[in-house]
Design a protein around this nucleic acid. Structure first.
Length: 937
RNA sequence: GCGGGGGUGCCCGAGCUGGCCAAAGGGGACAGGCUUAGGACCUGUUGGCGUAGGCCUACCAGGGUUCGAAUCCCUGCCCCCGCACCA
């Protein structure tokens, strides 16, 4: 670790990652600013290492690279955390002590949310520096800084002036005990539970309404009766100028959604049973019937019955018909006898009463049968997906259920015949404070109008001009731009910036983080200024106008904008990344729109999802201490491409560590071969004459080229494969091929390899590379050294083919020896006769794999007299080679050049024949181009 | 349900622009060498068969196109991610 500290100090002292405008071409990239509510884990490590590798690579290519960082402290989770710590919640304390490793004296201060984010911001920065990230820290800020708040307020006023902000209501999970909205982290039970919207249908009874909630308002045309639970309490309530009858248990929920709701009296449900209500749509009279299955806590405690399409209603009616005691108690014999199901939805595969059929299909016997739930689920799904309103339904007959549902609900609401409410998808939902949560509708909420068509058009145009990596996720962006609806952009609690025109509200995290990239360009300059002076004209002058005021700030912004790359997690495409596009396209002219985005996958730990709350996580600091920053970096960059999920496996991390050690040893080995350390600043290009020397330099060029291309498109895994693993394989092979030879050519080749290789590895393992660069006589920082040169031309194919032939020949010999089970004294190798090469050329020229055509040409050119041999060879071409292009080489001279190597590999004398002058077992005829014949004796 | 991504050899994971692909690379396992207290390092093997470099089988399953398919086409099965107050 001393090496790591040494280079961190030197980089910092030299200020080499600080970027200011100059004559160079620029690259500006940003990655999500972290929400510092806990310690960094290895998943964060990958997120922040990818941009660092790219930034280092581009600097070495000569670009002026800006890679900044800040802290997104906006939001409510730290409020909840602070509350829980204040309350001494044992689980929360345990998580912060044991998972996040917060010292006890610090933990005592965690009842202050501002302190939590300050603590973890420091912690994050420290770990980021340990990782060697080449960040320009001068531009560091946090989202509660007054200057940043002024920037966000400018932004949101701009959007309102453009008509892209509106007011409305919004449902949230709410704890009445805390008197605040709660997030999933705040829940003891019910984490991840969704909020469903239901339509309330008003069935008139006298001057009141029995209000029944449903997901399926289109089925009201088939209603036959209402269900009340006679064993539960019901009340009259007043809301919206009407009197409703609902269950008493429903009052708690509903009063958080209808804020004028008041209880005005009790109702005995038994008194209502047998009475009739009026269907708000058809005008028909429906009887009220008793049903113990009605849950008073769910929605309103009033249910309407559609026996044709709801298995539970169908079977409840059947059960009621046979329950004579109940019928007699309420005098319902004649009423129930007259009830017939009414079909309202036609769906393929089912008849008039699908509910009855699905009950039979599932073998449901009664209301208590557990199969009833499955039967219901299946029918609801099919009717929604494939159902069509029956033809007798006025107006909506023939319409798809999936379309009719929303249309009918909206129509009924417009006419005052329906209302809406929200319910949790599952129960119970319990706050960590112990309180039972409800769905509450927050009034006067503010929304971003992502539904605005013109804005969507702008967003699409912006996206069209962007590079998306990987390209296949562009479809996700296109989809989400169209899919997004209005977004609640303000909150009642949390850290952040207050809405400028209504200070009760705080701008929420996904809305205050859409154009902060622009803020980075000048953040270090604002530090010396007073936030109070930053009005809208101030920010206009920097980001939009050419008024000439604040010209220096304007010029710095203009140098760095547009943003070249935005990097973020792929699960944020549907919100943050798409919002980023929306907001840039609304605020900035087209010249300021972002140029590209790269998305990340998740991190796994030994095949399992990581989770801080479950303690299944490796802290980045721990990984650095155990393995060193370079090992962590290299592993994260080599185990998967950025957009894929990666899996932290300790055994492979150790393998990566061994590979870095090997790389360092390679430098020492080259020093040994060169009789002293090379002086990299004096290395001149190698110009080898031997086949193998040319092969090595060709491979080096190829690896540099492929790694460079990979990095250009953020393929960090492919880049490491080429730059380290495949180049190592090439170098291993070269060393083996030249074993025992120490001449000027070998020395020159190895010095060139080392010179290029250290630079090639520098973005991935900067500490190791700096140390080796210095040790072997490199000038200055390797972080500032030029990226290795390479030629775009393809390598000499003949050199590669020649080396492959040598390897294959060795392998063939060894294979034969293995099969024969003995070692020969002498190995004879026979190269292919000229006529076979000529036949190959003809086959390529003919252009199709046709025996007759090839034979005809061979004959016409008089290539070989023995047409039988030719036919056999052509058959083999067709079978083995097809239309592949074949590179012509001088097999004999290649093999002669490598004969020492072949002998040492097979442990026998090797004789190479260009003609079969000694061939006791007639093996020479087996030779085909690039696959010499072999005879062992 | 909507949108997106995937299924490869013991595990992870390349390959998909049809042709040395029994399939890159890494890990694990087995064997040997070196050094030994160990670790590290090096070499070989890692589907079956084979006394001549070869043959057979294999890339979720079935079918098709092709001289030739892990790769292209069709059908089916299974898995992962996102889908609105975490950010």
């Amino acid at each position: 670790m001393d090496i790591e500290r040494k280079w961190r100090d030197r980089w910092r002292d030299a200020g080499i990652f600080q970027a200011d405008p100059d004559d160079r071409e620029k690259i500006f990239l940003t990655v999500a600013y972290p929400y510092p509510s806990g310690a960094m884990h290895i998943g964060h490590g990958r997120t922040y290492t990818v941009p660092d590798v790219y930034a280092r690579f581009k600097r070495m290519q000569g670009y002026n690279v800006l890679f900044p960082m800040a802290w997104h402290v906006t939001g409510a989770p730290v409020i909840g955390i602070a509350r829980r710590i204040q309350r001494k919640d044992p689980w929360t304390l345990k998580i912060y002590r044991e998972v996040h490793r917060v010292p006890e004296d610090e933990l005592e201060r965690f009842s202050d949310p501002e302190y939590i984010v300050e603590y973890f911001s420091r912690e994050y920065r420290s770990v980021m520096e340990d990782m060697g990230y080449s960040i320009d820290w001068r531009r560091e800020f946090k989202t509660t800084d007054p200057t940043y708040s002024r920037f966000i307020q400018w932004q949101i006023r701009k959007l309102r002036d453009l008509g892209l902000v509106r007011k409305g209501a919004h449902p949230v999970k709410y704890c009445p005990e805390c008197e605040n909205p709660v997030g999933d982290h705040d829940l003891l039970e019910g984490e991840g539970v969704a909020i469903n919207q239901l339509t309330l249908l008003k069935f008139k009874l006298g001057d009141s309404y029995l209000v029944a909630a449903t997901f399926r308002p289109e089925t009201i045309y088939g209603a036959t009766n209402l269900w009340l639970n006679p064993d539960e309490d019901y009340v009259r309530v007043e809301t919206g100028g009407e009197e409703w009858i609902i269950s008493r248990a429903a009052v708690d929920n509903l009063s958080h959604q209808k804020l004028d709701l008041k209880v005005s009296g009790d109702v005995n449900p038994g008194d209502l049973i047998g009475m009739c209500v009026e269907n708000p749509v058809t005008g028909q009279e429906h009887p009220i019937l008793p049903a113990s299955f009605v849950d008073p806590e769910y929605a309103t405690g009033v249910v309407f019955s559609v026996p044709a399409h709801a298995p539970a209603d169908f079977i409840a009616l059947e059960d009621l018909r046979t329950d004579h005691e109940l019928l007699e108690r309420y005098g319902l014999e004649d009423v129930v006898a007259d009830i017939e199901p009414v079909n309202v939805i036609a769906v393929d595969g089912y008849g008039e009463f699908p509910a009855a059929e699905v009950i039979e299909k599932f073998g449901v016997r009664n209301q208590e049968d557990p199969r009833l739930e499955d039967a219901t689920g299946e029918l609801y799904k099919i009717e929604h997906a494939r159902g069509v309103m029956s033809s007798h339904i006025p107006v909506y007959g023939g319409m798809k259920v999936s379309e009719a549902r929303e249309v009918i609900a909206d129509e009924l609401k417009d006419q005052g015949l329906a209302d809406e409410m929200y319910e949790f998808a599952e129960r119970p939902v319990i706050c960590r404070c112990g309180g039972r949560c409800v769905v509450r509708v927050m009034e006067d909420q503010w929304f971003m109008k992502y539904s605005d068509d013109a804005w969507k058009d702008l967003a699409h145009r912006c996206l069209d001009g962007m590079k998306i990596i990987p390209e296949e996720v562009r479809a996700n962006f296109e989809y989400y731009i169209d899919w997004l609806n209005d977004w609640a952009c303000s909150r009642r609690i949390g850290l952040g910036t207050r809405l400028p025109w209504d200070e009760r509200w705080i701008i929420e995290p996904l809305t205050d983080s859409t154009i902060y990239m622009a803020y980075y360009t000048i953040a270090h300059r604002l530090r010396e200024m007073d936030a109070g002076e930053m009005d809208d004209e101030f920010f206009d002058a920097i980001f939009l106008d050419d008024s000439g005021t604040f010209e220096d700030l304007r010029e710095e912004f203009r140098y760095w904008y547009p943003l070249d790359w935005r990097l973020s997690a792929k699960d944020l495409i549907g919100n943050h990344l798409t919002f980023h596009i929306f907001h840039h396209s609304a605020i900035f002219p087209e010249s300021g729109w972002p140029r590209g985005a790269v998305v990340f996958g998740m991190g796994l730990l030994e095949g399992n999802k990581m989770s801080s709350s479950k303690g299944n996580v490796i802290l980045l600091r721990d990984a650095i201490e155990k393995h060193g920053a370079d090992v962590v970096r290299l592993f994260l960059m080599s185990s998967a491409e950025p957009w894929q999920d990666f899996d932290w496996r300790e055994s492979e991390v150790i393998g990566t560590r061994r590979r870095i050690e090997w790389f360092r040893e390679f430098g020492e080995r080259v020093s040994g071969i060169l009789d002293g350390r090379p002086v990299l600043s004096e290395v001149t290009p190698a110009e080898p004459e031997s086949f193998i020397g040319r092969w090595m330099m060709g491979q080096l060029n190829q690896r540099i080229r492929e790694a460079t291309r990979a990095l250009e498109s953020f393929q960090t895994r492919k880049a490491v494969q080429e730059a380290l693993y495949l180049l190592k394989k090439d170098v291993d092979h070269y060393l083996k091929r030249v074993e025992g030879r120490v001449d000027d050519e070998v020395k020159s080749v190895l010095a060139n390899v080392l010179h290029a290789w250290i630079r090639l590895m520098a973005p991935f393992i900067p500490y190791t590379a700096e140390e080796m660069w210095e040790r072997y006589g490199g000038e200055g920082f390797v972080a500032e050294a030029p990226w290795p040169d390479f030629s775009d031309d393809a390598e000499s194919r003949d050199v590669q083919v020649a080396e492959e032939m040598v390897q294959n020949t060795v392998r063939d010999i060894q294979e034969i020896m293995k099969i024969l089970g003995s070692t020969p004294e002498r190995v004879h190798i026979y190269t292919s006769p000229k006529w076979k090469w000529d036949v190959l050329r003809v086959a390529a020229e003919v252009g199709k794999l046709d025996m007759g055509s090839i034979m005809g040409r061979v004959s016409a050119e008089g290539i070989h007299d023995n047409m039988k041999e030719v036919a056999e060879f052509v058959r083999r071409i067709i079978r083995d080679l097809g239309k592949s292009e074949v590179t012509v080489i001088d097999e004999y001279s290649v093999l002669m050049d490598a004969s020492d190597y072949i002998e040492s590999e097979v442990g026998a004398r090797v004789v190479i024949h260009s003609k079969p002058d000694y061939d006791p077992e007639n093996k020479a005829v087996n030779a085909v181009p690039l696959k010499p014949a072999i005879y062992l004796e």
